[in-house]
Amino acid sequence: MDLHSLKALNKERRNRRAAILMTELESGTDRIVREGDAIPGELGEAVKKAFRTGISTGVTVDGTAYFLMVALPKPRLVVVGAVHISQSLAPMAKVAGFDMEIIDPRTAFATAERFPDVPLHADWPEPVLAERPLDPYCALAAVTHDPKIDDFALKAALDAGCFYVGALGSRKTHAGRVKRLLEAGATDEQIARIHAPIGLDIGAISPQEIAVAILAEIVQVFRSRGVAGVEKGKAA
């Protein structure tokens, strides 16, 4: 392995960016591939699939054997709102492999008693997200119902290219939210990326069930990144 390749790979990993170390096994030469790099043909398809699944794999193209060592950042789930739904979401997100944290400036909600096992920021989203910036390997779920708290975080998530942006509230609530976000400078494409009402439609009623629906939707979106037509479809 080339030392420069290793350093470049580790740099991408430290900066929470996805990268693949592509090694030609016969010669031992390797190179770093970043998401969006243009690689034609069959090899390009294998690279795309590796980025999507996060599974390292060998691939042979035209008689040449390659190994694709894929390093994806661990997905983070940032939840705005220390509410009942979040209490159920926290342990489930952990089991599903997401690093979850909660932001809520309302200190009556954001207490360690209510959330013993999850990083909790009892502050407004603006200062918290300035210190802990969102990125494309983050999901953001805004569940406070309060525009004063949710809106800034939603706009920040859209601007950061978070792979998932969801907002709690009825269609009517969402219509008002869309109006405010457009006024705040969001584009129509960004608005279309918001999942609202939040969660897969599984008929969820209780906060616990809504948490299931949200997590399922996040997994679905994460595992269909870059696959046209799948994101809006039914779960596999």
Binding site: L3, L6, L9, N10, R13, R14, N15, D99, P119
Partner: peptide, 18 residues
């Protein structure tokens, strides 16, 4: 609280670099 990126003391590729 810093962002959870690489576990430098346990990650094999970080150790290789070091």
């Amino acid at each position: 609280m810093s962002l959870n990126t690489l576990d430098e003391s346990r990650d094999p590729l970080a150790i290789a670099e070091e």
